[in-house]
Design a protein around this nucleic acid. Sequence first.
DNA 1: CGCAGTTAGTTGGGCATCAAACGATAAACT
DNA 2: AGTTTATCGTTTGATGCCCAACTAACTGCG
Lengths: 182, 182
Amino acid sequence: MAVQFINGPVVERRAKTNVARNGSRGVKPRAKNGEAAAKPISFGPLAAWIGFNLRMAQETAFQAFSRRSQEVGESPGRFATLTLIARNPGISQTELSQAAGRDKSSLTPVVEDLVRRGMVERARTRDDRRTYRLNLTTAGKKTLTQLTRCARRHERNLDAVIGPRDRKRFIQILKKIAAEIE
Amino acid sequence: MAVQFINGPVVERRAKTNVARNGSRGVKPRAKNGEAAAKPISFGPLAAWIGFNLRMAQETAFQAFSRRSQEVGESPGRFATLTLIARNPGISQTELSQAAGRDKSSLTPVVEDLVRRGMVERARTRDDRRTYRLNLTTAGKKTLTQLTRCARRHERNLDAVIGPRDRKRFIQILKKIAAEIE
DNA sequence: CGCAGTTAGTTGGGCATCAAACGATAAACT
DNA sequence: AGTTTATCGTTTGATGCCCAACTAACTGCG
């Protein structure tokens, strides 16, 4: 069965992107060693496209949160899971996967791991023996509290970048995108 | 070597999220078949967090673009790659990876595949025999044109959701997040 | 010159994710 | 009741991504 550390330490990450300024097609300033020659890369239409910027921003933010949640010894994926279980006691795995925007099969190892580590309790339902009901244990609640603290710090960080004026509208747009595309 | 279609058809996807209204802990409305009982799931603090909404929006948008680029028989990952090569002829793989925000090792199979399919030309440099210079072939340019059309349709779609008034500010914020977090 | 340190690209290992297929169970329809 | 269809969670196979380690090649400093 090889229980191995599913979703183990997400470890570092960076991908600085190194966004250059201009749009020259200069190609190859040939940075000699140690010179940090700031290669001017043209992003062309990419720079103006929402999809591309959305991806870059999401990944940066995700990695930042990864680092934070590591401080608590959890991976970011656990966080949404624990929160949703906490807020919806007895939720099934399928409901959980829909809420989290993941495929249900992705959740199998996650839940398995959380159960194994005593964060989540999984019980079969009386009236439908296919589904599980998920609930947090005391340990799970404690971990969630810690993770929530991390998340708050992370959010403060993002808030600072966005600015309080635009924050509400920004989230509203994100929700609209998630809900209305296609 | 198993050349298989690297980054092949991304195929379907959905993850509707099915955002429900309230926050009851009612547990198990027990939707009978065909009833589509709209289980009310509480997102708790998640609903207000930027990170979570960013992830959901990005994934929705990405999947939508996946579907579109499939119409042209390409995967979304190819698109940024082709665009960046087109705008920066002779770019190296490492520069490319930094611009695209990916690890350079992620680009190895991508470039390999694009070369194999005659989209990209890879030539060793005279003065540094480690690096490659990448350039689009005629076929590559043609494919890029098609992909760009897809992307424009996709962007129009996103624009419609965001609204012209907020678009500029929205992108600005995304860029700031990508650049300034941590 | 010659070796230490750095850089370009590849390889291998691991994780997260999705899709399709599957077994068990439940509901719907006749 | 019996058959068909839908649903829950798991399994399997594939992809994309990261990181660390590796090889080849280049640079710099003595």
